[in-house]
Amino acid sequence: MEPLVNVTGIVMPMDRSNVDTDAIIPKQYLKAIHKFGFGDNLFDAWRYLDSGEPGQDHSKRPLNPEFVLNQPRYKDASILLARQNFGCGSSREHAAWAFRDYGFRVLIAPSFADIFYWNALKNGLLPIVLDEAVVDELFEAVQATEGYALTVDLPSQTVTTPDGSRHAFEVDPFRKHCLVNGLDEIGITLQHADDIRAYEQRRAGEAPWLFQDLA
C-alpha cells in the first residue's frame, strides 16, 4: 500500500447524498480478476453517456459534459468532497480501487457507509468525517473558487483551507499507523500468530463443533 502522510490537492465536489457503490463502480467491472485498472470506470454510468463494458477502449466513449468529473476545473482533483452516507451498498473493494486508480487520495463527507469506509483505509485512501456545517461551507467554497485546494495532514489529523482555517478529524490509530507507513495488515496480524493458535486451542475445548472440518 502506498503511504499517505500529507496531501495538498484540488477538491472535486460530489453534491448528492447516499452515493452507492453501484454508482461508484458498476457491476460489469467487478468481473475483473486483478486489482488495478478501475480508474476509467469510476462513476461509469454518470460519467459516460453510453453503457460501458469491461475491456472496451474507454477513451473513445462519449463523455457526459454535465458530470462533475468531466469538468476541466476538476481534472486533477485528488480530494473528493461528498455528502452523507457516502459509499453505501455493497462490499466491493473495487469502489476503493477505482478512487485510488483514478488518483484520489482523500474523501471528505459528513458520514460514510461502514464497509466502504474501512475498504478505503485499506487501500491508501483516507476517508475524513467532518461536521455537516463544515462540509456545507466547503461545498460553497469549492463551487465559488476555481482551483480550490485543501491540505490534509494525517499525522496532525487536520484539514487546512486556503485561508488557513483548520479542521481536526478523527482516525482509527491502527489504520493511521498502517496508512502513514504503508504497512501490510496481514504481516502485522501474523506477528500475533501465537495468540491465534492459543485462542484456537482454548476455543476448541469450549466449542469443539466449531472445529469440525467442512468436507
Binding site: 462490499s91 475498504n119 501474523l190
Partner: peptide, 12 residues
C-alpha cells in the same frame, strides 16, 4: 468484508 479482508481471513 472487502477483498483485503478476504485475503486477511484466508491467511490468518
Amino acid at each position: 468484508i472487502g477483498t483485503s479482508d478476504v485475503e486477511h481471513a484466508l491467511a490468518t
